[in-house]
Simulated assay, not measured.
Amino acid sequence: MTSVDIPADYPLFAEAKDKVVAITGGATGIGAATVSRLHSLGAYVSFLDVDRKNAEAMIQELSGGNNPVRFYPGSVSVWADQVRFFEGVVAQHGRVDIVLANAGIMSAGEPLLADTLDDEGHLKEPSLAVLDVTLQGVILTSKLAIHTFRKQKSPGSLVITGSAASYVDGAGLPLYNAAKHGVLGLMRSLRDDLAAEPTDIRINLVAPSFVETPFTAHALDIWRQNNLPINQPSDITKALLFLALNREYHGRTIYVAAGIFSEIEGPIEATRATWLGKQNDEWYKQRRDKARLAKEE
Rank of each mutant, 00 (worst) to 15 (best):
G137R: 04
E61S: 13
S157C: 08
N227S: 07
T24E: 01
V133A: 02
D115G: 02
S209T: 10
L12S: 10
L113T: 11
A103Q: 03
D9K: 11
F242H: 13
R224S: 03
P267H: 06
V45K: 01
A239F: 02
L175D: 02
N231S: 09
G182D: 01
I203F: 11
T116M: 14
P214H: 03
G31S: 10
V133M: 01
R191F: 04
E248G: 15
V159D: 08
L243S: 08
E61A: 14
A114C: 08
L117F: 14
I30E: 03
H39W: 13
S234W: 02
E15R: 14
A273S: 14
L186S: 07
S36Q: 12
L175A: 10
G64L: 11
R202K: 15
T216G: 02
F242D: 02
A244Q: 08
S63E: 08
P68A: 01
V76W: 01
L293V: 04
Q232D: 09
G109E: 11
A14I: 05
I139Q: 05
K278W: 04
A8I: 12
E61N: 11
I236V: 15
I59V: 15
G25K: 04
G170D: 02
I30L: 08
Q60E: 14
G74R: 12
N102K: 05
Y10M: 11
G65V: 12
E197A: 03
P11C: 10
W223G: 00
A22D: 01
V130G: 00
D97T: 10
L245A: 03
V90G: 04
F242N: 03
E212Y: 05
S157A: 06
E282N: 07
M106Y: 02
G182L: 09
S46F: 02
Y10W: 13
S36C: 04
L131T: 12
H122T: 09
G65T: 10
I146G: 06
T148G: 00
I201D: 02
D192S: 13
L158V: 00
P208E: 09
A294Q: 13
S157M: 03
Y10L: 14
A145Y: 05
A258E: 12
V130H: 00
L243D: 06
E120M: 12
G104N: 04
I6A: 10
K278A: 14
A164M: 14
Q232I: 08
I264K: 11
A179R: 05
A219W: 04
E197P: 06
F13G: 06
